[in-house]
Computed example of a mutant assay.
Amino acid sequence: MNAAELHKDAIVIDGLVCGKMNLELFQDMHKGGVTTASCTMAFWENFQGTVNNIAGVNKIIDENPEMLLKVRTTADIRRAKAEGKTGVLMSFQNTYAYEDQISYVQIFKELGVGIAQMCYNTQNLVGTGCYERDGGLSDFGREIMWEMNRVGVMCDLSHVGSKTSEEVILESKKPVCYSHCLPSGLKEHPRNKSDEELKFIADRGGFVGVTMFAPFLKNGINSTIEDYVEAIRYVFNIVGEDQIGIGTDFTQGQGQDFFEYLTHDKGYARRLTNFGKIINPKGIRTLGEFPNLTEALLKDGFSETQVRKIMGENWVRILGEVWGE
């Protein structure tokens, strides 16, 4: 089977997209043969702001039933594939939207939120992010985590501090993930994960989605799709072929205001970092170019079975373990 045929036949899952959630973005996903994308509904938005974001995306899904399908279960992912649609899985990059109400975890689960990152770069009520002195998981954070386990929401640790992450990995009753990260073995960065951290999560049944966000890649904005595949290979060699997938962190369609929001604590307070220019790796600049990744993985020497796992099958399995369906 050639690369184009394999991409068309495979389940393709992007474990993290935070582009501008409009029709154009979803059309490009569909063009790229993306079976399901985990779409960020919240960073620092509160409960009401997050509900508004979900309502906006629900409207797009409802108005385009021939192309889009809301994903709540792994059966929905397989249905999207069978019907040639793109599944929309809703997720958070922070637990801020839960505010101080444990019951909100179930409410958002019922609205379709199946993955939630415990912290976004800095401290919240749950724990600590990767840009701050890490105090670990709070006792309230443990209650949030246990409720996420109970209702079936995956704990994401991509932007979470190492101590908080370690405690979630050890104490969660369900598998947890780095939905979008890169190895610090290729580039030192507060957002990248050490070999030890990657092995630690994998050894305990966790999952690693590899991102292609250029500031975290070895060659920065000069990176190519080959640099991204090099990072996938690096992580693959640590965690193995069953606990790795894709989480691009595509910010397609977003303007400078969005990046200002992301790089300040609480979206407005102190500056945490400055990404500078954002350019996705040459060869996969847009979601519509997703087939190029299947081709690049095959070219690098991954087997057809391994490519299927990396491109989506591993995500389906691990989500099923968390969601219980």
Rank of each mutant, 00 (worst) to 15 (best):
D76H: 09
D265T: 03
V210I: 08
Y261V: 03
P175T: 06
S165Q: 06
V17N: 11
Y96F: 05
F250P: 02
V105E: 09
Q93P: 04
R308I: 08
V34M: 00
E83D: 15
S194D: 02
A82M: 08
H7P: 01
R270C: 10
I60G: 12
N314A: 00
L182R: 03
V316E: 05
M311W: 05
V71S: 10
A75Y: 04
T86G: 11
A3L: 01
K59E: 04
E321K: 14
L125Q: 06
G245C: 12
M1V: 15
E166Q: 15
E197T: 02
A10L: 14
K81R: 10
E5G: 12
Q93I: 03
F108A: 01
D203M: 07
T95C: 08
G161P: 03
T95D: 00
L23I: 08
M29P: 15
E83A: 14
M212G: 15
P65Q: 07
I246R: 09
V168A: 11
V34T: 09
F200C: 07
A202C: 04
T95E: 05
G135R: 06
T251L: 08
V208W: 09
N46M: 13
L23Q: 14
E132R: 09
K187Y: 00
G247F: 03
S184P: 02
N192F: 09
G127L: 01
C18V: 12
K31P: 11
V153A: 12
V126E: 08
E321M: 11
L272I: 01
N22I: 11
V235M: 13
F275L: 04
G185F: 00
F213Q: 01
N280M: 13
V71K: 11
Q27E: 03
R79N: 10
I107Y: 15
I107Q: 06
K218A: 07
V316L: 09
N58A: 05
E143W: 14
L298C: 05
Y104N: 02
T73W: 07
Y228L: 12
G267H: 00
I244V: 07
K81V: 04
F200Q: 06
W323T: 12
G127H: 14
V57K: 02
I225G: 04
A3V: 05
G320I: 03
L297V: 12
V176H: 14
G205N: 07
G84H: 05
E313F: 06
G267C: 00
S179P: 10
M1F: 13
R285F: 02
T305E: 15
M29V: 06
I238V: 14
G33D: 06
F47S: 00
D249L: 11
A82K: 01
P65H: 10
W315G: 03
A231H: 10
E66S: 12
K277I: 10
S162N: 09
V105Y: 13
L16N: 00
E230V: 09
F275M: 04
G127V: 10
H7N: 01
N274W: 11
L16E: 02
A75H: 12
E24W: 05
G253K: 15
W315I: 03
L287Q: 08
L298M: 14
L319T: 11
K282S: 10
T211G: 13
S184T: 05
M148G: 14
W146R: 14
